[in-house]
Simulated assay, not measured.
Amino acid sequence: MHTDNNWTSTPVTAGLLRGALDVEHTEQGVLPHRLPAWARAQNTDGQLAMAESQPSGVRLAFRTRATALELDTRPTKRVYTGVPPRPDGVYELVVDGRPAGRASVAGGNTLTIDMTAGTAEHRPGPAGTLRFDGLSGELKDIEIWLPHNETTELLALRTDAPVEPAPDRGRKVWLHHGSSISHGSDAAGPTTTWPALAASLGGVDLVNLGLAGSALLDPFTARTMRDTAADLISVKIGINVVNADLMRLRAFGPAVHGFLDTVREGHPTTPLLVVSPILCPIHEDTPGPSAPDFSGISTGQLRFRATGDPAERAAGKLTLNVIREELARIVAQRAAEDPHLHHLDGRELYGETDFAELPLPDGLHPDAAAHRRIGERFAKLAFADGGAFADRNGGA
């Protein structure tokens, strides 16, 4: 920790943050959230509580002539019983839009999760300090992207020159909701989750509501999207509904309609793209729930398996193919009266050929290379001429 009196200490406030929808004030700092307090109050699921507090897409953004900076944080590390330790979360420095450094913070709180018993234990731990130096003394725009998969309490920002909030660049805001894949599971870092990469390629500012294990058509998530300013909106629906075995076909269709209706209450003419699931062979024709497969743990590999019976589709159990058909039907029906509603088959982002080349390491989640491919594909399909977001002009 730097103690030079010539350094400037700047309080971390909502004005320095991008991509967070709420900021909780703690005893020592602030904790960014991706769901507002009223939505969190309606949730009783520990998985969602953990996911929304992990700051995927959240970054500090400011302008300064500083040549060095320090950020004190208290991360929360996840420890899974019987599973090899996870690497520390990655912070990425971006200067004037270009990558300029990566670092991690050790220590912090620990959340020990036993997937077999369904329990979680939280233990407090010490704060740590992140440092970037060797920067130019020119006036520049700096972003520090927080770890996409590690809850991060922000305690103090210190620089060797004053800072001011980053100016509004006038870019369109893209609001996206999806599962752990959109959250960034197994991406190399916070700027290369597929939504962050696609946003960079598309020249838009990202608000990422990718919520690991929690893209479950929750009404409070729809209302959050309704109330969030955005010029472009997408929702990626399907895999969590299947691997949680949350609902049957009878409930799924009306729930999708209700979710879209709610979003449209706040954004009646905004380009709205509905994306179906990417290829996931274990659930293409086999219902959930998913369950962890510990058979490869001795070699450090956790995988997932589908535990449903394909015959149960006749009783309305959901598979990815069933969901893709239903989403295509719903969007086609609604698009007759909603010309700003669009559909994208997720297999155009990652399909059979991609799986053959870049298989899902654990059976559910793309690796870092596949994240990059999905992000590049989404940018081409959504932002290029003819795509749902081609003109990047949004409504209210």
Rank of each mutant, 00 (worst) to 15 (best):
T151G: 02
E348N: 12
F259K: 05
A255P: 08
T299H: 15
A311M: 06
E348R: 15
A306I: 07
T262E: 15
V241N: 14
L157Y: 08
G238T: 04
T353K: 15
A251N: 14
I142W: 06
D362C: 01
P271E: 04
E153M: 03
A335W: 09
R74I: 05
N43Y: 01
H25W: 10
G308M: 00
D96I: 02
P11I: 06
A215L: 03
H342R: 13
A198V: 06
D385L: 12
H365Q: 03
F220L: 11
I181Y: 09
T193R: 07
D160H: 02
L349Q: 04
P289Q: 09
R34N: 03
M225I: 15
L341W: 12
A103E: 10
H122R: 12
H122Y: 14
S182R: 06
L157V: 11
T228G: 08
R63I: 13
D133A: 12
E27A: 15
G213V: 09
E150P: 07
I330E: 13
N6R: 14
A51D: 13
R250L: 06
H342E: 13
R334D: 06
P254H: 07
H365F: 01
G108P: 05
S200F: 01
E284S: 13
L327M: 12
F304K: 00
I144W: 03
G15M: 08
A196E: 11
L232C: 08
E265Y: 09
D186M: 15
E138F: 08
V242P: 06
L344A: 04
P99M: 05
E138G: 15
L17P: 03
D141S: 12
V94C: 00
G288C: 02
H343G: 08
A199M: 02
R329H: 13
A20G: 04
L249F: 10
A382F: 07
H283C: 07
R86G: 09
S276G: 14
T110C: 08
E150Y: 07
L48Y: 05
T224H: 08
